[in-house]
């Protein structure tokens, strides 16, 4: 068996497990949701920001697709339904920012989709603003930083694919007393954000976030599938290491 075939077997197994668990959880079973204090703080801070009448900034990253981290853009979009509610539209203090045209289009579609069953046509018209401060990583930072200074957010949530400039956004929000939460980004961004962001999710924790925010059946199915794959992969790596040390591999 070649490494490519092993890879495809993992993908096929993941697809079967995901489809199976989605059906199972949609009927009645549930997978227990783990608690994460960082996510709880994000939710609390967003509520506090609404009560204080200050803004909430959601950053969906600088691109929909990158070669090194292909799933991060989609992950940011999957987070979005959990971050928009009719209250956000009425209150009007939330801004969604991205650094890519494709992300803007998808984000707008998701936001409008969330409000299509709204309470009134008037509410549907007041859809949350999705802005594009800049279409490249540098221009995105250059456009976002003044926004964070002129309209300091009470809560800044960063998702998706972003690079080393993310600590600057975090610092700009924190210096004005805003709470910062970050998930995802490149490895270098995660290392840099570790220094100045307390509520930071790294590695596979990032992909569990939609389930922590909104434990739907599909999110729970994704969680369980990811858990099974991760434990299997860990067991395989340990067995392979033992076999290698014993000289059998």
């Amino acid at each position: 068996m070649t490494w490519t075939q092993i890879g495809w077997s993992i993908i096929a197994l993941a697809a079967v497990l995901l489809a199976g668990f989605s059906l199972l959880f949609r009927r009645r079973y549930q997978y227990l949701v783990r608690k994460n204090p960082a996510v709880k703080r994000l939710q609390d801070q967003r509520v506090i920001a609404v009560e204080r009448g200050v803004g909430r900034q959601v950053v969906l990253g600088e691109g929909l697709w990158t070669h090194a981290y292909p799933g991060l853009g989609l992950h940011a979009l999957s987070m979005l339904p959990g971050m928009v509610s009719p209250e956000d539209s009425v209150e009007g203090g939330q801004v969604i920012s991205t650094g890519s045209g494709a992300l803007v289009l998808f984000a707008r579609q998701i936001v409008q989709g969330c409000y299509q069953d709204g309470f009134s046509p008037g509410l549907q018209e007041r859809v949350l603003p999705v802005s594009l401060p800049g279409p490249t990583p540098l221009s995105f930072s250059a456009g976002l930083l003044p926004d964070l200074s002129t309209q300091p957010p009470g809560s800044l949530a960063m998702f998706g694919s972003f690079g080393l400039s993310a600590p600057l956004w975090a610092e700009a929000a924190q210096i004005k007393g805003g709470h910062v939460f970050a998930a995802a980004g490149s490895i270098t961004a995660q290392a840099a954000l570790f220094l100045n962001v307390r509520d930071l999710l790294i590695g596979e924790e990032v992909f569990m976030l939609p389930g922590l925010m909104e434990p739907t059946a599909s999110n729970q199915a994704g969680w369980l599938t990811e858990d099974i794959l991760r434990v299997s992969l860990m067991a395989l790596l340990i067995v392979a290491a033992i076999l290698k040390m014993a000289g059998l591999l």
Partner: peptide, 19 residues
């Protein structure tokens, strides 16, 4: 992250998530 990305992609592919 690769496992997480795989699950995100498969969820779109299997029409569980529809951005």
């Amino acid at each position: 992250m690769a496992l997480g990305g795989l699950i995100v992609g498969l969820r779109v592919f299997l029409a569980i998530d529809r951005p």
